[in-house]
Amino acid sequence: MRPAAPESTRRPPVALLAAAAAALATWIGASLWERSHPPVFADLVKWVPSAVAPDSASGGKPILYYFTADWCGPCRVLRQEVFSSEERARYLNEHFVPVIVVDRMREDGRNEPKVDELLRRFSVNAFPTLVVTGGPGTGASPQTGYPGKAKTWTFLMNAEQTFLRAQFKGR
């Protein structure tokens, strides 16, 4: 009787290849599903409501006003791509006083006086609008609409630099 052949040490990784195929199928399926049903991402920026927000820069940090509305589609993309990123949100929380200003005109027919005052002061007529400022009497850098993650981030960095330069000259 012939002895049994020793087990091969070069068995193909069938289970791993099957797992890779399953993961690929899930990846493609989930990507297609998420394209038609985009998930709502958590906003990691610690926004201060406009009603209780300071009017001028505090602690050497400029105010970042985020003008938005519940019905605004590009605002959701902005939140997903910029404000839900841990790294970016951390930077914004540390270098700005983030203030959220929610327009309720379409839903309630009116806004809170503070919201109306901020909309007028910065001539906001579209959403989302981001404004970086040191407060009343100082310059303000606005960005209207959402031009994409990279351009928005560049805008925020430039606006912060402008604020810091103005502060330095003012001393």
Binding site: A19, A20, A23, T26, W27, A30, V40, A42
Partner: peptide, 15 residues
């Protein structure tokens, strides 16, 4: 933190 939980990122990692 997202709803519904997006699986594409986890599936891409697993792949």
């Amino acid at each position: 933190g997202a709803r519904p939980v997006p699986l594409s990122g986890l599936a891409a990692w697993a792949f």
